[in-house]
Amino acid sequence: MSAQERRAKILAAAISAFAREGYEKTTMDQIATGANITKPVLYDHFPSKQALFQAVLETIRDGLIAKGRSIVAEDTDPADKFRRAVDAFLGFVEDEPAAARVLLTVPSGDPAAAQLARTVQVGASAGIAALLTAFMGARSPWQLRAATEFLKEGLHAIALWWLDNPGPTRREVADIVLEIAWVGLRGQAGSNGERKRKAIDRKR
């Protein structure tokens, strides 16, 4: 097994343990056992549980951001682009529930781990801000940040609720998000388009 393959196996075992036991109760022994490796080998890859937790969070976050960027880059209708972004996030929650719980649940009993989780979320905010820029246009930095946090926390809340209440389908959950969130963004996208058209007319 290559070092990269072993690292991936460790991360998978860590995600499973963190989701099942929580950060505080998870031990490096449990993760080593789950990855079917010895504890010294585990420490060769990650010097501490906190370092491993950070790697887990960043890996999950970066995968989501990459999906979001690819959607933002597409030349499609704004409504379709937003729906696809929401669906991609909910698809992650549906397909990788353990990873979703780890990413979205901030440890409560370890201040250092909690701060680490919040720091990783700053990167997630940057990814969502890039998506919202396509709809909100030339808004002030604070307005974009406020909208980003509002949407991010809302998506996180509905994701955790859905994990605990798995009755609705992914499409149904996406529909309620769009019904609530797209109403405002649709107006922003329309206003942004109108401003662009006026700017083009002035140049003619």
Rank of each mutant, 00 (worst) to 15 (best):
A51P: 05
A199N: 14
F135T: 04
G127Y: 00
L103D: 05
D87P: 00
V72I: 11
A99P: 03
T76M: 11
A85Q: 07
L163I: 12
L42Y: 01
A13K: 07
N165T: 14
F92V: 05
T119I: 08
P40L: 03
K49E: 08
Q50R: 15
L57K: 01
A51D: 12
A138N: 13
N192S: 13
R7V: 02
L64T: 10
V177M: 09
A147H: 01
V173N: 05
E58K: 09
G34F: 01
V173C: 08
R202K: 15
L185S: 01
A159G: 00
A32L: 05
T148R: 01
P40S: 05
G167W: 04
A112V: 13
R170W: 09
R202E: 15
E96V: 08
T148L: 03
T119H: 13
S125C: 14
G187P: 00
R204E: 14
E172A: 15
L160V: 04
T26N: 08
V41F: 06
L116K: 08
F89Y: 14
G187H: 12
S191H: 12
D80M: 14
R6K: 13
P78S: 08
D77L: 10
E5R: 12
T38C: 01
P78G: 08
L160I: 08
R20A: 15
A189F: 06
F82Q: 02
A73W: 03
A98W: 01
Q121K: 13
K152G: 11
V183I: 12
A126I: 12
D175N: 11
A126C: 06
V86P: 00
A117I: 02
I65M: 05
P168W: 03
V173I: 15
V56Q: 01
V173G: 05
I60M: 08
F82N: 01
K81A: 11
G68T: 11
I15L: 05
T133W: 07
N36P: 00
D110S: 10
R101G: 06
L185H: 03
G187E: 12
S48A: 11
L132N: 03
D110K: 07
A157L: 10
Q4K: 13
N36G: 10
Q188S: 14
R195L: 14
T27H: 07
A8F: 01
R139S: 14
A79N: 10
W182I: 03
V177A: 07
A14W: 04
